[in-house]
Design a protein around this nucleic acid. Structure first.
Length: 496
RNA sequence: CGGGUAGUAGUUCAGCCCGGUUAGAAUGCCUGCUUUGGGAGCAGGAGGUCGUGAGUUCGAAUCUCGCCUACCCGACCA
């Protein structure tokens, strides 16, 4: 047996495990640029599936895709006071437009003559450039609503970065909608949150808590921020998506008014919503184990891998006579199948490798199976395998993929339930927070109290759960810190 | 951005303290033979401006300083 490198176990060092997994499962790697990653083909294939699934759901909500510029005039950012306050510290700025040969012969230097009159900001988010554009698109109530989304990259000059979880440049989608009424905009922001939650649970098998952010955690420039919060295996919370009700803030900053059917001018109501490549991080930290990635079938680039076990080329041919029809039938059902006929690696190597890559179902067939009319079927999520008759294998696999999808969600949900608890005293809270998980506690609703809790325990309010989440509702009580009245428990946790 | 650790072959690392031929190992990679039911074996081969720029020195992977990058702890954030 050769010396192969296993992943650092999660119990030993969770973040080391995460970093190694991302690289070894071939999802992404560091680039030459600080904080910026290269997303490798296998990782990007997962992202493309995420995109495709979300895009389909957006379009069902009437959203159309568009594209706005990467660069934003510096002056735009200062139009909305809170917005600039929120992003100013992490912006990359373009100041020149030309290079020249170094007069001293050391490569190229920035041409000082080529300084821009107004600096351009590499978008950290696109509200400003989009609202500047919407101004030209909107005259009357008949122009509304505008429901646009763009898939793009953004840049936030983060101090400390981690692959997928927090990179200086990341990929995302940002939806920006314009509405005639407050009610319609609020409702739309809420609906998009449902789209995200449904996607997270059905496709990514990640259970999420839908809620609203406390004022401290709200998006810069928003009146209300809805979010979905997920619990990672180490008990920390990860914000998986946000949907903002922006009120008329951006309309006022960019003077976007429309004429109502009563011939009056009114400011437009806005929403914005987004999810990013951070979802990849959520995916990894929700399902994967010490043997590598575990992918929910709905997202797996390869859903089923078939490994023939053979000695000679003739034997491979015999095996393929059985395997190819199975692969074809699976493909006909829309299942993504790979038949691995490579003769360079041994079956053992392949098994370990596909486990590292998170392929949900593995079929293996060798000489014994040929004689017996059987096939070995192994599932990634439970690490179990059995030898079954080749008859009906196609239906078995199809059903198993759905079972794995369901099982992953259930497993993640159970984990969250086990690690969610109510706490009433602040002393107890301080102890419980260290153990990780979600803590449901009463809070007086003030930013001061939240800030104090954050400073003393590092825990933040992840969200105030929506009323529809029955298991998160509670009787009114008193704040665990100040003793002042509290309408209901909110979710506290350490977070990414 | 502050404190700490590190950067040598594709990867993981040894060598550095105490400067001195041609910089090593394992693994991976290539070729051939052999093997294939949980990371096979043998033989041969390719692969490194020692992160980068200065400096000290007759001589630097090794000593000094700057810079870059990664990781950990803070502050900041999706």
């Amino acid at each position: 047996m050769a010396n192969f490198q296993k992943l650092t176990p999660r119990s030993e060092d969770y973040s080391k495990w995460y970093n190694e997994l991302v690289v070894k499962a071939d999802l992404a790697e560091q680039s030459a640029v600080r904080g910026c990653m290269v997303i490798k083909p296998y990782g990007y294939a997962i992202w493309e599936t995420i995109q495709a699934e979300l895009d389909k759901r957006f379009k069902e909500k009437g959203v159309k895709n568009a594209y706005f510029p990467l660069l934003i005039p510096k002056s735009f950012l200062s139009r909305e006071a809170e917005h600039v306050e929120g992003f100013a510290k992490e912006c990359a700025v373009v100041t020149h437009h030309r290079l020249m040969n170094d007069p001293e012969g050391k490569g190229v230097v920035v041409d000082p003559q080529a300084r821009l009159e107004e600096e351009l900001i590499i978008r950290p988010t696109s509200e400003t450039i989009i609202w500047n554009t919407y101004k030209n698109w909107i005259n009357s109530y008949r122009d509304l609503p505008i429901l646009c989304n763009q898939w793009c990259n953004v840049m936030r000059w983060e101090m400390r970065t981690r692959l997928f979880l927090r990179t200086a440049e990341f990929l995302w989608q940002e939806g920006h909608t314009a509405h005639a009424t407050k009610e319609e905009a609020e409702d739309y922001a809420r609906q998009m949150l449902d789209v995200y939650a449904d996607f997270a649970e059905k496709v990514m098998a990640i259970p999420v808590v839908k809620g609203v952010k406390s004022p401290n955690e709200r998006f810069a420039g928003a009146l209300n921020t809805y979010c979905i919060e997920a619990m990672m295996q180490d008990g920390k919370a990860l914000q998986a998506g946000t949907s903002h009700f922006l009120g008329q803030n951006f309309a006022k900053s960019f003077d976007v008014q429309f004429l109502t059917n009563e011939n009056k001018f009114e400011y437009v109501w806005a929403t914005s919503w987004g999810v990013s490549t951070r979802l990849m991080g959520a995916l990894i930290m929700t399902h994967s184990d010490d043997n590598g990635l575990v992918l929910p079938p709905h997202l797996a680039p390869i859903q089923v891998v078939i490994v023939p076990i053979f000695r000679k080329a003739e034997q491979l041919g015999e095996l393929l006579e059985k395997i190819n029809p199975i692969a074809d039938q699976l493909k006909a059902l829309g299942i993504r199948v790979k038949v691995d006929t490579d003769d360079k690696y041994t079956p053992g190597y392949k098994f370990a490798d596909y486990e590292l890559k998170g392929v949900p179902v593995r079929l293996a067939m060798g000489g014994r199976d040929l004689e017996n009319g059987t096939i070995e079927i192994a599932r990634r999520d439970t690490q179990t395998k059995e030898t079954v008759s080749i008859d009906g294998i196609v239906n078995t696999v199809q059903a198993l993929l759905e079972e794995i999808q369901t099982n992953l969600l259930q497993k993640a949900l159970s984990f969250r339930v086990e690690n969610t608890r109510s706490v009433d005293s602040y002393e107890e809270f301080k102890e419980e927070v260290k153990k990780g998980g979600f803590i449901l506690a009463h809070w007086d609703g003030t930013p001061e109290t939240e800030q104090r809790i954050k400073e003393e325990t590092k825990a933040t309010i992840r969200c105030i759960p929506l009323p529809e989440l029955k298991e998160f509702q509670s009787e009114p009580g008193v704040c665990m810190v100040t003793g002042k009245p509290s309408a209901g428990r909110v979710v506290f946790a350490l977070s990414y």
